[in-house]
Design a protein around this nucleic acid. Structure first.
Lengths: 262, 262
DNA sequence: CAGTGGTCTAGACCACCAC
DNA sequence: TGGTGGTCTAGACCACTGC
C-alpha cells in the first residue's frame, strides 16, 4: 500500500489511517476492523506494527478488543456529568447515581460493596477534617449503565454523624444520602471537587474493563455544611472516554470593575 | 532476575518494578533510569520488552525521555487550577493566566498568537450563541511555567461586543479581559465549563511537548452575563499529568429536605 | 564516535473465541 | 480446530546526544 511516509512512524500513520476510516463511516460503530494479519498484508507491514497502531486507537477509546474474536469499533455515547444538576437531583427524589443514566435512557444499576464502619485512612481523615484513625462509614459502590461499568464511587462519612442512621443500608431512601444528612442536622450547603487524570490501577482496570493506557478521571468530591464542616468525601473513578464533566459557578468578584490595582 | 511471573505480562511487571523504584527514591526525580540494554540484560529480557514497560511510565508522565541521552524521572509539581479563584483574580489586578504559576512561585509567561477578527467556526458559533460565520475575535495563546508549556488557550469574543476595544491588544490591561468586558457593558456573572479527557492531536503534541499516549484535559470555558448571554468562549488544552482542576459551587436545592417524591 | 532511545521485522508461542 | 489478538525475542537500522 501507499500510506506510509517517513516523517511519522508507520504505526502512527496506520493509526491515523484507521481513525479516519472509523470517523468517515468505513468502519461504523459496532463493526469489526480487519484482522491484524489482514491489515499487515494489505499495508505491507508486520503484524506487530499494526498491533501498535491499534494500540493507539484503544488508548483513545475508539475501539475495543475482544480477545480471540476481533477488534470492534466502539459506539461511544458520551455521558455528561453535570455537577450542579447531579447533586441537586434530590428534589426529584433520586440519588445522584441515576441522574446521568436517566438522561440518556440507559438502564442504571448500582452495586454496593461492603458498607461498614472503619478507621479513616490519612486521605479520608484529611478530607473530612477528622483525626487519623477516627471511625468513618464507608459506602463503596460501582455504577453501571446498560450493564457497562461507568464509575467507581467510595463515599465516606464521619461516624459520629451517621452512625446508626439509614446510611448503613444500601438503599438510603428518598432523595439520597444528602437528604439523610439534612435530617441528621447536617444539611449540605456547598460542594468542592478536585479533578485529576491518571492511568487506572489494577483493581480499577478490572472493575471498569479498562486497559493500562486508558486514562480515568479521578474526582475527590467533598460536601460541606454552611459552616464549612465536611460531612462527606467521595472518591470517584470514571473511564475518561465515557464522560464529560460539567461545572457551573457564579462569579466571585465582589468589587466593582476597574477597581483592581496590582 | 526474578521479577517476572506469568499472570501479568512481563512488560507490565517491569513497569510496576520501575514505578516502585521511582516512588521509593531508588531513582529520584531528575535522575536517569538505567539504559534499556542495561535493564534488558539485568532482567534477562529483550530490549523491546523494556521499551514497552518504559512506555507505560511515559504515558503516566512519570518519566521523560531525551532522545539519544536517556530516560529521566520527572520532578512533577502538580499545578492546581482553582476555577473560582482563577476567574476571580481580577480583584488582585492579574489576569487568569498567572494565578497558578504565582501560587507555585513559577516564572510565568504567555505567548500570544495572531489576535484577529475571523468568522466563527460552528463550535464557536454555538458556544457564543451567534450565527455561524458571524465575526468573532480570537485571542490564541500558549502559557508557560518555568519555560515549560503548560496550557493552550484560545479565547473567542463576539466581534460586535469587543471590536475596537483593548481586547485587540495582547496586553489587555489591569484586571484582564473580564474587566474590559465589564467596561464594555457586559459584566460576567457566571461561568460554565465542560471538561473532557482525550489524547492530544499532532499540533498539541508539538506545542505541549507530549507523546501520543499522554492524555490532556480539554476544557470548554464559557463566560455569561447575568441575563445568560455568552460573551466569551475559551478552549483550553492542558497536559493531564501537570494539573489538578478544582471546582466549588453552592448547593442548588431550594426545597426543604424530605419533600422530594419520585 | 560510542551510547541512547525509536522503530521495524520475521517468527514464534500462547490464550481465547466461535464454529 | 482455525482464526483472533497478546506477547516475546533476536537482530537490525536509524536519529539523536554528548563527549
Amino acid at each position: 500500500m501507499t500510506v506510509v511516509q517517513p516523517p511519522k512512524a508507520q504505526y502512527e500513520q496506520i493509526a491515523d489511517w484507521l481513525r479516519a476510516r472509523i470517523l468517515d463511516g468505513t468502519y461504523p460503530p459496532g463493526s469489526a476492523l480487519p484482522s491484524e494479519p489482514a491489515l499487515a498484508a494489505e499495508l505491507g507491514t508486520s503484524r506487530v506494527t499494526v498491533n501498535r497502531a491499534i494500540g493507539l486507537l484503544r488508548t483513545a477509546g475508539l475501539v475495543k478488543v475482544r480477545r480471540g474474536a476481533g477488534t470492534y469499533v466502539r459506539s461511544l455515547p458520551q455521558i455528561i456529568r453535570d455537577a450542579k444538576q447531579r447533586y441537586g437531583a434530590r428534589e426529584r427524589g433520586t440519588g445522584a447515581g441515576e441522574v446521568e443514566a436517566r438522561e440518556l435512557n440507559l438502564r442504571s444499576r448500582t452495586d454496593y460493596g461492603d458498607i461498614r464502619r472503619m478507621s479513616a485512612t490519612p486521605d479520608v481523615a484529611r478530607a473530612l477534617g477528622v483525626a487519623g484513625g477516627d471511625d468513618v462509614l464507608i459506602r463503596p459502590r460501582v455504577l453501571y449503565a446498560n450493564d457497562e461499568p461507568t464509575q467507581i464511587a467510595d463515599s465516606y462519612y464521619p461516624w459520629d454523624i451517621v452512625g446508626g442512621s439509614a446510611l448503613l443500608q444500601a438503599d438510603v431512601g428518598t432523595g439520597g444520602s444528602y437528604s439523610r444528612l439534612a435530617e441528621l442536622g447536617y444539611p449540605v450547603a456547598r460542594f468542592a471537587e478536585d479533578v485529576n487524570v491518571r492511568m487506572p490501577n489494577d483493581v480499577e482496570r478490572r472493575i471498569l474493563h479498562l486497559e493500562a493506557t486508558q486514562p480515568v478521571f479521578d474526582i475527590v468530591h467533598v460536601a460541606l455544611t454552611s459552616d464549612d464542616r465536611p460531612v462527606e468525601v467521595a472518591f470517584h473513578v470514571l473511564p475518561g472516554h465515557l464522560w464529560t464533566l460539567r461545572y457551573g459557578w457564579d462569579d466571585a468578584v465582589t468589587t466593582p470593575p476597574g477597581q483592581g490595582t496590582p
